[in-house]
Design a protein around this nucleic acid. Structure first.
Lengths: 356, 356
DNA sequence: TTGTAGGCGTTATCAT
DNA sequence: ATGATAACGCCTACAA
């Protein structure tokens, strides 16, 4: 036999309906779309629900309707401040909407990502936001099986799963290095931590720029698999100074590395930017208030989260999404830390790589 | 009439059971607790499920079992890095468990908090983690109605809802100020941003310390409702210098303010700590690598998240939680920025407030 | 605008 | 260790 006793204190649609003198379905309608119920009943239902302390049961709703209002969000790290800005955008966009966010952390592991994707699938999410373009084939299959709008964020790439919003890390880094070259820097170091796919692409941009300027030298590249931090910035810079003492600029794949480099320069009494220029990436808030102010590449993280969320909602609610792949671009914020005194004429000179 | 057609591709327990030649309930048992099913059927069910690509339906499970495995987490801000450490602890603790986290952002508003609490309630969460002790009466009532383990984090207070883990912000700030007093500082400024309840309590600790030393002067306190940032640290410090030019130390209610003060000192060629000592709060990673290294109050944020999550799981799974209120303490990390040259003898001298 | 009928996929309960 | 039965609370589809 099945269950028998209905707990006395339990309040369901039925109880509210009885008290309001209407049928359960009317109460159901009232909660989902009050306008579809006549004003008179509306009031009766409202007060009945309040009197009884009715709380809708989401599980029953999801089971009956075969869908939820959960948006799955997958990010690789909670430590990296970059993602807190993106998340803020996402949470702000869904604020006040009926959707709720389910956040999970892949820890930069595609296997974790697969596992979490599978978990999301069990929830029948209304939409999903995933980081990057490096999902496994299996991962992509799972996402597709979810059969809901999907936005890939943080970067761009061919063959989107569904929608995509980000920018080119290769181009962004290329632009930063070009700026340093234009400032007359020749021995430009690259510092990178964690070396996740997006940092790898920044490294690619660095290599492209340095090679096309005829200035590439692998000794100028110092990286680590350890996560980024200010302290790590100092260590990587120290390594760089050992490997290439003649370095005249440092590109840091993250801003906290750049801050660490600045501190290390202060410790070693190296003048910034006179002896060494510094450029960071992401343009975190502190970059503009450091002494000297630190040049960085602004990435529109908050907007990225906001728009990704908006794209999801538009898609769910049937509003056509015109731009399904959005390039948010970037901007090299040129500040004191990269103002070299010997600026150099444009391309021709630079590309030649002549000593000046 | 109700619905009629069962979609052909749909895979439920029933389909798996049919293929495996067992009853649905056995399959159900297999997924919840494989050990309760005989090894032979275990294999048949496993392969049947895989062949069919079965994905459990969480909504149905929740409806039938009258519970979920969702843990609701309420934090006031996604911007403030303090919470990313706490969250990391929480996510790490639940990693690999069957629980999933539902995160929501109150934006430092108790009304938002109430609304979100109500939303959580509809999900019948298995546990909840909420920030602080300043819930409204209504908010507390909602949490209690959820009838699940609850942990309040970040601070301590009387009358816990259920469990609690944090530390005393009053004491922590008092200790920091005491350290500065011991270093011989007399005109100690207080800089605070956002002024949420916890910053208010730090201010209280500051006032207690300064008053008991006979050194309290309201002109030394500069605060703003704007969120904390490095730039804001510089601004608040500039204000302080106008109001109290003779200030000899600055306590910052957040580390990023402290970093901003350091930069502002560099800009004004004020020697740290010789002319002005700086102390921050939270001991973020960069504090130890700044030049000079910056004194701060270490708070055990990661551990707080980790243990809060563990307490929840223990409670859910019937393991007795011995310490239901945990004081995680703090530690004043004394670094270069607060090493004054004129250290002063203990209490008697200090309390007198004599000029030295 | 409102109501009727039936089912959504799983688990609790009791029985073997 | 396994199975039969009923119920979880709501919503879709259709009808009035």
């Amino acid at each position: 036999m099945g269950r028998k006793h209905i707990k006395p204190g339990k309040v369901r649609l039925t109880e509210v309906a009885a008290l309001a003198g209407v049928s359960p379905i009317t109460v159901s309608r009232f909660f989902r779309n009050p306008d579809t119920v006549s004003p008179g009943r509306r009031l009766r239902i409202e007060s009945a629900a309040k009197d009884l302390g009715y709380v809708p049961n989401l599980a029953a709703r999801a089971l009956a309707s075969q869908r939820t209002e959960v948006i799955g969000v997958l990010i690789p790290s909670l430590t990296n401040n970059v993602f807190s800005d993106v998340l803020r955008g996402i949470y702000d966009a869904f604020e006040g909407s009926r959707y709720s966010i389910q956040l999970a952390n892949t820890r930069y592991s595609v296997l974790q990502e697969e596992r979490l994707l599978r978990l999301f699938l069990m929830q029948k999410p209304a939409g999903m936001i995933v980081t990057g373009v490096d999902q496994t084939a299996e991962g992509r299959a799972i996402v597709q099986a979810a059969d809901c709008p999907v936005v890939q964020i943080m970067e761009l790439g061919p063959d989107p799963i569904d929608m995509m919003i980000g920018f080119s890390h290769v181009d962004a880094c290329f632009a930063a290095i070009s700026h340093l070259l234009a400032q007359g820097c020749r021995r430009i170091g690259f510092l990178g931590a964690r070396m996740d796919p997006r940092v790898q692409r920044r490294l690619q941009g660095y290599q492209n720029a340095m090679k096309s300027a005829g200035l590439f030298d692998p000794r100028l590249i110092v990286t680590t698999a350890v996560p980024t931090s200010t302290t790590m910035g100092g260590s990587l810079f120290s390594d760089l100074m050992l490997r290439a003492p003649d370095v005249d600029a440092v590109f840091c794949a993250n801003d906290d590395l750049a801050l660490g480099v600045l501190f290390e320069c202060q410790r070693r009494h190296i003048a910034v930017p006179e002896q060494i220029a510094i450029v960071g990436f992401n343009d975190m808030e502190f970059m503009a208030s450091a002494v000297p102010t630190l040049t960085s590449v602004r990435t529109n993280r908050y907007e990225m989260g906001l728009r990704a969320a908006t794209m999801i909602m538009d898609e769910i609610e049937g509003r056509p999404v015109a731009e399904r792949v959005v390039d948010l671009g970037f901007e090299v914020m040129e500040r004191q830390s990269s103002q070299q005194r010997h600026a150099v004429a444009p391309a021709a000179d630079r590309v030649s790589g002549t000593k000046w």
